[in-house]
């Protein structure tokens, strides 16, 4: 356990060298939230659409924009790098679990983002655009659980991509594809409740909604308590399914590495 914490700390401190970019990150987040806020104000105005106000949508955008900085699905280039350089061999010979190693370094850099980007951005956005408080204490608890699910599902999806790249050897293309699906089905920009019926049910069946729509919707309380519970259980189920898939794939990947020598 201590070793994994060390990896997390290491990647946290590694991010420190990017610190001159903190200002630019804050500016970038501000721009993204600003764009979305203005669009929602333009289309919803002072009234409501489907019972949702512009102010609620702004909070929705803030949560989604900032959560994107915390998600863990971008490790495929790291895995690909050590796969191509052969460093994976030394990483595998360490008495550690490789996925946990990836997870802890991912969490380390997310922790950095949380402290240096997300919290300052949140304060700025709160000040500039206003932020609605969570619907209730219970909803806030649900929101925290949903963030946990977002982290775990984003990690598993990223890891899945990295593993597929053992065969396809083009993590870049896989990343683009994943990105495309996330854009459409995560609800990061357009919440699922504004989707047409058919698209809504498709998105409901996929795991991507947990990366954006679910945490924000739970926070805002636009879902009933039972709906929330069902969604969270669904999220746990998705985590479990992905976990089984990556576990099987990982075993195959290691065998492939051993046979082909990397």
């Amino acid at each position: 356990m201590k070793a994994y914490i060390m990896f997390g700390v290491k990647s946290f401190t590694k991010q420190m060298s990017y610190r001159s970019e903190v200002w630019l990150r804050l500016l970038g987040n501000f721009a993204v939230i600003f764009i979305q806020a203005e669009i929602w104000k333009a289309v919803i105005g002072s009234g409501q659409v489907d019972g949702v106000s512009a102010q609620q949508m702004i909070t929705y955008s803030i949560i989604n924009t900032l959560m994107l900085a915390l998600l863990l699905h971008r490790m495929s280039s790291q895995v690909d790098g050590s796969l191509k350089s052969g460093a994976i061999a030394s990483e595998l010979t360490k008495p550690l679990s490789y996925p946990l190693f990836l997870l802890s370094s991912g969490l380390g850099s997310s922790g950095y983002q949380l402290v240096f980007t997300v919290i300052p951005s949140l304060l700025i956005a709160w000040f500039a655009f206003g932020l609605i408080p969570p619907a209730s204490g219970l909803h806030f608890a649900g929101f925290l659980a949903a963030i946990g699910l977002a982290l775990s599902i984003s990690f598993l999806l990223g890891y899945l991509i990295s593993l597929i790249a053992f065969w396809v050897m083009n993590h870049f293309a896989l990343d683009w594809m994943l990105g495309g699906f996330i854009t459409i089905f995560s609800g990061t920009f357009l919440p699922l409740w504004f989707f047409p019926e058919a698209w809504q049910s498709a998105a409901g069946w996929l795991p991507f909604q947990f990366l954006g729509y679910v945490p924000a919707a739970v926070y805002l309380g636009t879902l009933s308590v039972t709906e929330t519970m069902v969604l969270l259980v669904k999220g746990v189920a998705w985590s479990a399914i992905l976990l089984v898939i990556v576990h099987k794939l990982w075993k195959k990947a290691v065998r492939r590495l051993v046979i082909q020598g990397g």
Binding site: F172, M177, G179, G180, I184
Partner: peptide
């Protein structure tokens, strides 16, 4: 992959 990704961008604006 890039075609999928950019189609995604169009789709989300279209849905909007």
């Amino acid at each position: 992959a890039q075609i999928i990704s950019y189609t995604g961008d169009y789709i989300i604006i279209w849905l909007f």
